[in-house]
Design a protein around this nucleic acid. Structure first.
Lengths: 149, 149
DNA sequence: AATTTGGATGTTATGATGTAACATCGATCC
DNA sequence: GGATCGATGTTACATCATAACATCCAAATT
């Protein structure tokens, strides 16, 4: 079990050092994702903020907050699921390590696993051979978790 | 340039042998995808069928047709883009070879490339280590094509 | 040929995700 | 206090997708 408070304090400092602010609502959204082992949609996050903090955040704001948190490398968007998850490496200083996301198609449980450099290199090579440029090397894998299987 | 007609005839036979039918509208949708090097959304396919065949197909029908074509392994859904593309191996008999899709985030151009068994094995191993089961090993890579880069 | 039957398609309404444009709020700086 | 600028609110709308029910049509049966 990770300590949400200490992660939030770290994130706060990180934002401050970059000249941005982790506001109250941004904290609520980030905390919602930190305390969930499942990826959540924007609308699910609205519900979480309402239930846990009695805070009404309009959809537009949640999307903006999610954009902000992605920009701060605190949150990932899982495009195949249209849901969001906090970065696994949010607790430590590892940065720039590309990831493989295992997403349960039934319950949205997510695990983020580092991608070996050798794998990354091979995928990258394929992309270059096809005259494409890799923009965001985020591998999302359509899975079932052990509970749902 | 591949021969759309001969592919359609192959697909027709394949359906017949499975006890399904490649109807006129299903052919229109499949042809639309075959003749595009870009992935197309359901609504873009509606427009293509209207322009090329003067055929009005309601959205609901296009989605059903796309489901059917996926079931026949003639079409892929690219989840990260919410668009659809014809199978690259639709011309030959290769089956069951897992794919890596390079998708231009700007213009939706798609290339489907076979995934090496060694890569597949490694990804699969990661999934198992995390107690997940891989459902659909379709790697979608967020790229830019050379034209858009 | 008429009838039946089941899959394919049409219609309507609605849900889910996401964004554009513009208004307002609120913390910090002078 | 007032100016300023980023954060948030409001409204409207675009896009993707499906549920529920009606109808059509082609092949099989009589």
């Amino acid at each position: 079990m990770r300590n949400t408070d200490s992660i939030i304090r770290r994130a706060e400092k990180q934002c401050a050092s970059r000249g941005t602010r982790l506001t109250k609502k941004r904290k609520y959204v980030l905390t919602g994702l930190l305390e969930s082992d499942k990826a959540l949609s924007a609308y699910e996050l609205i519900a979480v903020c309402k239930e846990k903090y009695d805070e009404d955040i309009p959809a537009m704001s949640v999307y903006r907050i999610l954009d902000f948190l992605q920009g701060e490398h605190l949150v990932h968007k899982l495009n195949t699921a249209s849901k969001y998850a906090s970065c696994a490496n949010i607790e430590d200083d590892k940065v720039g390590c590309y990831s493989q996301f295992l997403i349960c198609r039934s319950c949205s449980k997510v695990k983020e696993v580092g991608l070996k450099p050798s794998m990354m290199a091979e995928l990258q090579a394929t992309v270059q051979d096809a005259s494409f440029k890799l923009v965001n090397p985020q591998l999302e894998m359509n899975c079932l978790c052990d509970d749902c299987a």
